[in-house]
C-alpha cells in the first residue's frame, strides 16, 4: 500500500473507561423490571427457551381469551367463579456468561463503545438476576489477565456494576478482544461455558471487528442461547470525509484525502456487508444479534437482542 499511513505517537483514546451515574443505574433496574414483567406475561401458555429445569410460581392474573386452558387455575375458578391463570417464571437453574470486549477499539467514540457495551451488559445482567439466573462477567484486564466476576442473587448486582465501572480498554494491539477470549492460549470462554455445566446463555458485547465467525461457532455452538451485541461508534457508522482516520489498535493512519466522498461511499458498502454478514450468521445459527451506535440508549436495541 502506498498511502501515507504511518505509525507514530497518537492521542489517548477518547473514551477508555466506564462510568455509571445514579440515573443510569436506575434505568438498568427499570429496564430489567419492565422486560421481566413482559417475559412473565409471555411465559403464560408458551414454551420459551428462557425457561429451564423448573418453573417458579409468582402470582395470578385474569385469563385472556385464547390462552392455553392448562394454565388456568381451576381451584380459583371454582372458588371465585372468575378465570385466572397462574404466572410462572423460570427458576434459578439458568446460568449466564457475559463477555466484554476490552480491546483498544472499544475505547473510541463519544459516548465510548466500551461505555455503551458496559451499559448493555449491566442492563442484561440486571435482567438475568431478576429472572433468577446466575451471571458471570468475563473480560481481560489491561495487563492481559483474564478476569471473572460471578453473582447469583440480585442483591449482588452492585458487585457486578462495580466491576463494570472498573473496566479499562487495552492500550494497543488486539489484546482484550473477543477473539482472544474465544480462541488462543488465553481463551477462557470455552472452559467457562463448559465448566458451568452448560451455560444457558452467552452474551458477547463488542465491535466484532476481528472476530472469526467460525471460531465463535466452534466455541459457543450447541443448545445454549448466544446473543451477539455489536456496538460501533457514531463515527464508524458515518465517517467524516475530511479527517485522518486512526486505527486505535495499530496506530495506523489513513490520510484525510482517502476519505473523500467516493471513498466514504465504498466504506459504507463494506460496512453494510460486514454487519449483514454477522446478522446472517446469527440467523443461520439461531443466535440473537443487534448492532447499534454507542450513542443509542440501551433501551432501544436491548429488548430485541435479549428475546
Amino acid at each position: 500500500m502506498t498511502d501515507d499511513s504511518r505509525r507514530s505517537r497518537r492521542a489517548p483514546l477518547p473514551s477508555p473507561g466506564v462510568e455509571f451515574s445514579p440515573e443510569l443505574i436506575r434505568r438498568f433496574g427499570a429496564f430489567a423490571s419492565r422486560l421481566a414483567n413482559a417475559r412473565e406475561n409471555e411465559d403464560v401458555g408458551t414454551k420459551r427457551a428462557l425457561r429451564g429445569e423448573g418453573q417458579e410460581f409468582v402470582g395470578h392474573r385474569p385469563y385472556r381469551p385464547g390462552e392455553d386452558l392448562r394454565q388456568l387455575d381451576w381451584q380459583l375458578l371454582a372458588r371465585l367463579d372468575r378465570p385466572f391463570v397462574r404466572i410462572q417464571r423460570s427458576s434459578v437453574s439458568e446460568s449466564w456468561v457475559v463477555v466484554l470486549d476490552t480491546s483498544a477499539s472499544m475505547g473510541i467514540g463519544e459516548p465510548g463503545k466500551l461505555q455503551s457495551a458496559a451499559e448493555a451488559a449491566a442492563a442484561s445482567i440486571s435482567l438475568g438476576l431478576r429472572l433468577g439466573a446466575s451471571v458471570k462477567l468475563v473480560w481481560m484486564d489491561p495487563s492481559g489477565d483474564l478476569r471473572t466476576v460471578g453473582v447469583r442473587r440480585a442483591s449482588e448486582l452492585r458487585k457486578l456494576l462495580a466491576a463494570l465501572e472498573a473496566l479499562r480498554v487495552h492500550g494497543d494491539g488486539h489484546s482484550g478482544g473477543l477473539e482472544a477470549l474465544l480462541e488462543g492460549p488465553k481463551a477462557a470462554v470455552p472452559d467457562l461455558v463448559r465448566r458451568e455445566g452448560g451455560a444457558g446463555r452467552v452474551l458477547l458485547f463488542g465491535d466484532f471487528i476481528d472476530v472469526d465467525r467460525l471460531s465463535l461457532l466452534r466455541t459457543l455452538g450447541g443448545r445454549r442461547r448466544v446473543h451477539l451485541g455489536q456496538v460501533l461508534s457514531p463515527e464508524e457508522w458515518r465517517p467524516s470525509s475530511s479527517v485522518t482516520w486512526l486505527n486505535p489498535e495499530t496506530g495506523e493512519r489513513r490520510s484525510a484525502t482517502s476519505g473523500d466522498a467516493e471513498g466514504v461511499g465504498e466504506y459504507h458498502q463494506r460496512l453494510d456487508r460486514f454487519l449483514e454478514g454477522w446478522a446472517a450468521h446469527a440467523r443461520t445459527h439461531a443466535m440473537a444479534h443487534a448492532a447499534w451506535s454507542s450513542a443509542d440508549p440501551f433501551e432501544r436495541y436491548l429488548p430485541e437482542l435479549l428475546r
Binding site: D3, D4, I108, G109, D207, E236, T244, L246, N247, F274
Partner: peptide, 29 residues
C-alpha cells in the same frame, strides 16, 4: 484542520482493500 484532525476508527480495515486499489493516488483537496 483537514491535516490535523484525527479520528479513531475501529473499522479502518474496511478501507484497506479500497486504499490498496487506489495505489496512492492521493490528492489534497
Amino acid at each position: 484542520r483537514q491535516e490535523s484532525r484525527e479520528v479513531y476508527l475501529g473499522t479502518t480495515r474496511l478501507l484497506s482493500a479500497q486504499e490498496a486499489g487506489e495505489a496512492g493516488a492521493r490528492k489534497r483537496s
